[in-house]
Design a protein around this nucleic acid. Structure first.
Lengths: 216, 216, 216, 216
DNA sequence: AATGAATGAGGTTTCATTCAT
DNA sequence: TATGAATGAAACCTCATTCAT
């Protein structure tokens, strides 16, 4: 409670305390949400878990939704950037399949780390419009990027030209993210990231016709 | 109790009333669930919607969960049979891609009809263990069937032998069902079953390598 | 949490408020229970009577049973100590009849003050196991004490040796407590403590043979 | 109530059924009341127990209270007449102690048979005015009779003249009935009617001074 | 009289949020 | 800011009783 290591010039002990409490609440919220789900989780439990009075929760968050948003915000960065590689390698010369694979591995790694949280987002999205919008927004950015990549590959004569790039992007992105959900958030049998990534990349590549002999 | 000879077609008058009310409640429950979601839906609203006193709800269902189970049960049949086609055509000689396409179309049709309900199942599955189990059970049967089909195609030399049939089944099934969800339950832009089915079938076929020349 | 030196007399202000409300609820509960009986009493009424929102009831008591237990706890002390006199006078040499009379007067006084509450305990005991146990426990302690006293008088040659001390204790204790109930909790005609005590003491003394000439 | 032995000329089979159902409900009500207590007992349970639809309950009883009244009515007769002997023996010459003892034995026997029902009456009396009145009425008749007997014994010089006959009657009657309750309805240790009767009679006789030498 | 579905009053309890200290 | 008591909306479910058949 007292100023601990406290940078000497910045004597604002109260603020430091506050920041620490906010962190404690954030961590507690994540734990409780992951354990109980959003609907069931109670503010009291979060505060208890953080070692604070439940009234204090409202010193830092406006509501349960707000707390969840903050928790998700923490993870957002790593979930939003499944490797910049997917958009195409900087150098340009890289093998597209390798790019896809790298992106899948990165995504699956991140997903596995945050599986329960991702499942949580699924749940809230069906209950709270705000999060439905958030999820939609995120995935649309993702989809658009993938659609662009597919279109480019088609133009380069590397991908099956009969595919609708937008729908293909939807279907394949969906395949990856939902497989991750099925395996890491719901699944009963342990599957390694490597195994899953191998299958997903191969399916993705096959599906776009990347591996097929299109040179003729 | 009554000495009725139990003529099957001759339901007793009171039973007819009761059955009608049960149907009314069932329909009302579906409407309210689809409109409000499971968590938000109130038993009172369901009864109101059915034109009954809320106490009557409990003459037919033990709880909200029970009512949902009944509603889902109604749909189960059509959602559980994505066409016998997938299991292999009766004649046996049919083109596998055609089989897959027929199955996809059938599934997407059914999904579109019950999109909100399927989304509902997603929601409850994250909140209520009972439904999580139900969903898991259903999808595992589905996955097993697809995995068998893939394995057969591999053995017939028609599908990419490098794929793990179980993971491929998971990924592709997931692709179809989640695309259906994205398009019909969440999606903002209207997409026709035909369009979506065309893309999904092509991706599926490509992914398994069915269209590739594997005869050499 | 606060660095208070825990000065016992210095309750913190909030605690003071809370304590006042708790007292208010306790008093209200007693009033409502006495007026309406336990089964009929409504938590809302108790809170209303205390001038609080009904939700506040649950800040202090877990349930209606809990509140009753607290109310009874308040009275327990005086009802549990029917005067130390019964256990034998400090001086030791006192007339046993005088001891009994003092005990009876004390008990009847206390009973009259708490008559409705005692009747309440009777009521709940028939409905709630927890209170049945409580009542049993209390009365058994009481009975044991009286049985000991009777046994001592018998050994001293002062009481009818033909009596079973335990059954006699049961019967006579029962006579006193139930007469108090009949007169103060149910009775229609006003009877003074003095009158009733006189009769009960005389009966008790006669019954044990204390007044009879047993010196021969 | 209805002609039981069924005069053969009175062929009304439906009535016979009805009577049988009424009996079944009565027996079921007694069982359920004894098992669950009055407050907790549910009409449905009673009907179930009787093998009838719960609606049928109302063909025979107006309410739960009504059913209880009927159940108690069945027992009333034997509980109301604790032996005509108490009022004084017909011959007049009998030993008063023997009379009291006979009455006590009769009462205790009856009480033991109906212990749970008597406890039930206690319970309802605290909850329902109607039964409070019933119990009061019964006991007052009882008390008045005993008071008369005591007064007579006093006038005959056989009983302690210092006792107030009404209060003594109250106390002693109370002693008997409540001891019966304590032993047969609540008690944990088995006590025989004979033992209890012996103690109660001796206490009663002593208390009135019947055994004391009053001839001097 | 029997049936059992329908009715609806009614009270308990939970918990997010507010607020005085 | 922290505290934790107070607030009160909200919804569930039970069950005695009615009533149409």
């Amino acid at each position: 409670m007292a100023p601990s290591t406290e940078a000497p010039g910045q004597a604002r002990p109260l603020r430091a305390d506050a920041a620490r409490n906010r962190q404690a609440l954030l961590a507690a919220a994540r734990r409780v949400f992951e354990r109980d789900g959003f609907v069931t989780a109670r503010i009291t439990d979060i505060a208890d878990e953080a070692g604070l009075a439940h009234g204090s929760f409202y010193s830092h968050f406006r509501s349960k939704e707000d707390a969840l948003a903050a928790v998700l915000g923490e993870v957002e960065e790593e979930m939003l950037h499944p490797g910049p590689s997917l958009a195409g390698s900087p150098g340009g010369r890289t093998d597209p399949v390798a790019v896809i694979h790298a992106a899948n591995v990165a995504y699956l790694e991140a997903y596995r780390r945050n599986a329960r949280l991702m499942a949580l987002l699924e749940q809230v999205a069906t209950v709270d419009e705000r999060f439905a919008a958030l999820r939609l927004e995120r995935s649309e950015a993702f989809l658009a990027r993938n659609a662009r990549a597919i279109r480019r590959l088609q133009q380069a004569g590397l991908a099956d030209p009969d595919l609708d790039p937008d729908l293909a992007s939807l279907a394949l992105s969906t395949m990856v993210s939902r497989s991750a959900y099925a395996v890491f958030a719901v699944g009963r049998q342990p599957v390694s990231v490597a195994e899953l990534a191998a299958t997903l990349t191969r399916l993705w590549a096959n599906a776009l016709g990347l591996s097929a002999d299109r040179r003729t």
